[in-house]
């Protein structure tokens, strides 16, 4: 039996625009994943604590306020501190092209921008997910 892939979808920072996050969460559920949705106004600390407790394989971050350069890398950093660098972090939202490369360098493995079809996110997850058999 294949281990179910678990994904945390979280909104770091203070913006309350959760349309995208909810859409992704629901679409990933429909694609057969176990999705843990934490709601808005999460701190990097609470996102990482959740990721570890829930033993997720992926953390998807959604942010529209422009605070991604500060908050996304902080999540990756904290995961590392907790010895959980195997958890894959990806992000989405209003993120300018020029920010993508620096974010990737800091360990955010994919950035999905507005207009990205959900199939792109699923392809990413499928290409990265662990294939530990039971």
């Amino acid at each position: 039996m294949e281990r179910k892939t678990r994904i945390e979808i979280a909104k770091p920072g203070l913006d309350g625009h959760d349309r995208g996050a909810k859409y992704i969460a629901r679409a990933l559920k429909d694609a057969g994943y176990e999705v843990i949705y934490t709601g808005i106004r999460q701190t990097p600390e609470s996102i990482v604590a959740t990721a570890i407790q829930e033993d997720v394989d992926f953390v998807g971050l959604s942010l529209l306020s422009g605070a991604h350069n500060e908050l996304f890398p902080r999540v990756v950093e904290l995961l590392k501190t907790e010895g959980a660098e195997d958890i894959i972090v990806f992000g989405g939202g209003v993120i300018p092209e020029e920010d993508i490369e620096p974010l990737t360098k800091k360990g955010i493995q994919a950035i999905f921008r507005p207009g990205t079809p959900i199939s792109a996110v699923i392809d990413f997850i499928e290409s990265k997910k662990k294939t530990t058999a039971a």
Binding site: G13, L14, D15, T43, A67, N69, R74
Partner: peptide, 17 residues
Amino acid sequence: LPTQIGYDSDDPVSMGE
């Protein structure tokens, strides 16, 4: 956003915002 949610700029939750 910190202003909209009633936090000063020096509050930890205001980081990045």
